[in-house]
């Protein structure tokens, strides 16, 4: 390698992560030697059967759980037991019941030490975008399931980290809203590319293969528990991608490949 080409550090680098949950006399092997790279600015989806360890992998990347073996790094920095390096959206919305919608959206910024007034202004400007306009002063208990999820996503977006970990962000939405959110998420990520700030890289967990194909540059398929990476499929469709892409022949072919990988195990 010559001096002129800089070494490219991936946004996320997971190497040989293995994890076993140990309870009272019970051992549950959840992740088995999982390795995965995510290039800067990339969008990678993780699909796999329920219980295969997807959320566990995200918790490890978020620095909340130390794996038994292996390493995980964000932009070259190890995240093991070092929370705060990524914007992480857990599978549950986990809105704080004692904060109104707007205050929930600004939580990450406030924890990060941003002035509350400034955080509120930034968040309020995005409420419209996230389909939450008019609900700034609502309590989480007054929001619908889909609204709660969008609020959780907004909260995650407002944590300005270059890496986003999204754990089934659209799981609670109906098919129609989900499709809207796909268009919208691609748009938001594109608009987000501001000069001077690092592009966001996304690791996206989902059960929905179409969703994964529509949004990603690459789809990683995991086996049932203990989760291993069993297939990786590159998705080369030009962006922006429209919803009608899902009926194209190439798309259907890729979908068949993924389904086969999921079933092969």
């Amino acid at each position: 390698m010559s001096d002129a080409s800089p070494v490219v550090t991936p946004a996320i680098q997971i190497t040989g992560v293995t994890h076993v949950f140990r309870g009272k006399g019970r051992e549950l092997a959840v992740l088995d030697n999982v390795s995965l790279d995510l290039p800067t600015g990339g969008f990678v989806s993780l699909v796999g059967p329920s219980g295969c360890g997807k959320s566990t992998l995200l918790r490890i990347l978020a620095g909340l759980l130390a794996p038994d073996q292996g390493s995980a790094a964000v932009a070259g920095v190890s995240t093991l037991l070092r929370p705060g390096l990524v914007s992480y959206m857990p599978q549950k919305d986990l809105l704080l019941p004692w904060r109104r919608a707007l205050a929930n959206a600004t939580l990450g910024a406030e924890v990060g030490g941003a002035p509350p007034a400034q955080a509120r202004a930034r968040a309020a400007a995005l409420f419209e975008r996230f389909g939450l306009a008019g609900f700034e002063r609502s309590w989480p208990a007054q929001l619908s399931g889909g609204m709660r999820q969008r609020l959780a996503l907004l909260r995650t977006f407002l944590i300005s980290r270059p890496v986003l970990l999204l754990d089934e962000p659209f799981g609670a939405l109906d098919a129609i809203t989900r499709r809207e959110m796909h268009t919208w998420l691609q748009q938001v990520l594109r608009d987000d590319e501001r000069p001077g700030e690092a592009v966001r890289s996304v690791l996206f967990v989902t059960h929905d293969i179409e969703e994964a194909l529509l949004l990603s540059d690459r789809v990683v398929v995991m086996s049932p528990r203990p989760g291993r990476v069993v297939a990786e499929v590159s998705v080369a469709f030009a962006r922006p991608r429209s919803a009608s892409l899902v009926v194209s022949a190439e798309f259907v072919a890729l979908k068949a490949t993924l389904l086969a990988a999921l079933e092969r195990r």
Partner: peptide, 28 residues
């Protein structure tokens, strides 16, 4: 709620942040 505490920790919050944003309001 442990998961809410983890949420704040995931945002980079330390003990004081988990108290301020989760434990104290939950204890009111």
């Amino acid at each position: 709620d442990r998961e809410m505490i983890d949420l704040v920790r995931g945002m980079g919050g330390r003990t004081w942040a988990t108290l301020r944003y989760v434990r104290i309001p939950a204890a009111v």
